[in-house]
Design a protein around this nucleic acid. Sequence first.
DNA 1: GGGCAAGCCGTAAACGCTTACCGACAATGC
DNA 2: GCATTGTCGGTAAGCGTTTACGGCTTGCCC
Lengths: 343, 343
Amino acid sequence: MNIREVARLAKVSTATVSRTINGSDKVTRETKERVQRAIEELGFYPNTWARALGSGRSSLYGLIISDITNPFFPELVKSFEDIAVENGQEVLVANTNYDPVRMKLCVSRMLQRKVDGVAIMTSEMDSRLISEFQNRAIPLVFLDTGTAQKLTSNIMVDYAAGVDAAVEHIVGLGHTEIAFIAGPSMLRSARVRKEAFHVCLARRGIGAGWMEEGNHQVDGGHEAMARLLSRKMRPTAVLASNDMTAIGALGAIYERGLRVPEDISVVGFDDIQISAFTQPALTTVRLSRDEIARVAFRALYGARQDSGVGTEYAVATSLVLRRSTGRAPGTRAKTGGLEAVAI
Amino acid sequence: MNIREVARLAKVSTATVSRTINGSDKVTRETKERVQRAIEELGFYPNTWARALGSGRSSLYGLIISDITNPFFPELVKSFEDIAVENGQEVLVANTNYDPVRMKLCVSRMLQRKVDGVAIMTSEMDSRLISEFQNRAIPLVFLDTGTAQKLTSNIMVDYAAGVDAAVEHIVGLGHTEIAFIAGPSMLRSARVRKEAFHVCLARRGIGAGWMEEGNHQVDGGHEAMARLLSRKMRPTAVLASNDMTAIGALGAIYERGLRVPEDISVVGFDDIQISAFTQPALTTVRLSRDEIARVAFRALYGARQDSGVGTEYAVATSLVLRRSTGRAPGTRAKTGGLEAVAI
DNA sequence: GGGCAAGCCGTAAACGCTTACCGACAATGC
DNA sequence: GCATTGTCGGTAAGCGTTTACGGCTTGCCC
């Protein structure tokens, strides 16, 4: 089953079939319809490989992520797939598992499949690998870890604003003993969040704050929170570098026999799906994966036309108020003051 | 950059380069090495589309799932990708979103990309769509919803054994008032679990049990549990059709001011990652997505050689004991009896 | 009515690889 | 020494599209 059979049935040349498939305007309406009928009658699907060979475009976009089982990513992948398919493109997903060897493998997979562009949404990638793409003039888009240049764009998430909103909220509830559970310091986004936390406290004249480092996983959050609770003094509010960490912290708090938010308030970051269903539902800073995916795809898909100038994109964050934050123990709400309202 | 340049540099023909790449044994070691050097020197990656055109094999396998944001799937996708890449194959993931229109789109995407096989891991699919694959002799593998025949295999999960293990565990803890929160009855796997529950209770001479229907999501589990708790009598143990439902049930129980497992024991099904981190950690029936993925891939990858006889595969389940189950209120452990032990 | 432009469509040459077939050569047997 | 066999590697014909180029109609104008 190929374009020739369609051509024969429709009594046209293969070129005309190709043109109708590709929506060229150089074909009469009638001819087009005749071809369409033939296509449907035969149940013909054009062979994408041959199309790719002939046209030089694979209509395939690579999406390199760290680990699909990390709840941050599924939504991102889905949105990316959605918008790609809407535009008649296909997606190749590859997990690096945070492993440099596998990263190399991911790059080679992309190269072999001749993708038209790659979204790199994982921790830092070796610049030698990156240049493999750049040498072949393949458009790239990074999340946080890149710099805009010819054919490569970068998406900057406004982590600072998110952290600031969270701190504002917590401080507004009367908290002054505020801790932060950071992510692995090798991650740029984790470092940015941690630094933003320091800046926010300093700006409000609150001490340096308490700090522990987790691993952006539940267990790391659990252990970090346990360390925090074993100190002489304990914080009345905890910000976590991501939601997984916050979930781990919740567990550690319960194990100590304390309550959230009565004894300790907890704020997460990311707004992964499960955060709405923890006990209590987690107040967190939402980072729209949908928006990231859409911006990323647009950046890649548009790269060819736009003469390939890379752009710096910005993605905002927003505070989502749920049940894990409340007034600091021993304080009373100022009348007329702002209260946390669950959504 | 193509195979011809490599051939020129290595002073051989394109055929020899191709043979080296494909590991043919019709090339001397020396020649092979010469070609390898040329490939590395040029940083050459063979064009997979051209390979596919020439050989008739795309080295691409389709994986149709319901929704990657459903925590059941990421692990499945990852394992499938892992084993595919190990074997030099690539994966195309497509979400149906439980939407018939999108299902059709998924099928057409697979057809256009000329996949070498498709794993269909979603709710029932229209037989007209399925025959699109069968007409083209594309191997298929289903999860629960198929029947083995030429070129199509089926993976049967032993849900009944899983449910039985869970009931055995619960009954062993002295429970007699046991409820079941079912999944959507349009899902075969949900129906099987529900029926297995009935059979298990009947076999042990315990009444019909209580039943509510959820939607396999957290909110459905929450509502179903709330309905259960608003009855005159309440169960002392609840089995949920999947972990998401169980998590929703946990929330509803807490909102009533009850404790798990002191007042009510809860058992999930699937063992999704987050189940280990709920409060308390969820006792559940593990369904190894890794095993499903590996079996599915093997079934597809082997289909061509094995003259394409479809096979019926079986996947076992196993009970994972955590903290959400305990003795029925008002009963005492029999000395020497089995106790739930957290893992 | 002849010339011309525009619109449609067909011809055929890529695209980069695989592979059937064949030839060259060396090793072997007689 | 010659025929035979086997091994290695080259030649070239696909695979199913796209697309540059060119040819045929048609309509229009002078």
